[in-house]
């Protein structure tokens, strides 16, 4: 089982890296890009048979809250892949 955690900057938090990437994309000639926001993606592989799906989700959410994301500036989303 695998937990996938997506961490993104909260709306309203300036993302200078996203802005620079948007600028680079536009330099390549891509038009119609309104905004680019950079985030982080984590794959957490759970040991076989260690946790059921619900407990794995709870554990991944706790890891996201306590370590992977800084709740002051970031939001997170967890997906479980059986």
């Amino acid at each position: 089982m695998k937990a996938k955690v997506y961490v993104t900057l909260k709306l309203g938090v300036l993302d200078p890296q996203g802005k620079a990437i948007q600028h680079a994309v536009e330099l390549l000639g891509y038009e119609g890009v309104a905004d680019v926001r950079q985030g982080k993606y984590f794959e957490i592989k759970m040991a076989d048979g260690a946790l059921g799906e619900e407990d794995a989700r709870k554990a991944a959410e706790r890891m996201a809250r306590e370590v992977l994301a800084n709740p002051v500036i970031e939001d997170y989303r967890v997906e479980i892949e059986p």
Binding site: L14, P16, Q17, N70, V72, I73
Partner: peptide, 17 residues
């Protein structure tokens, strides 16, 4: 100290990178 919650707020990438 911010990450530990001893001070509020956060320090992010500089405006001009």
């Amino acid at each position: 100290l911010c990450e530990a919650g001893l001070l509020p707020g956060a320090l992010i990438r500089n405006r001009d990178l």
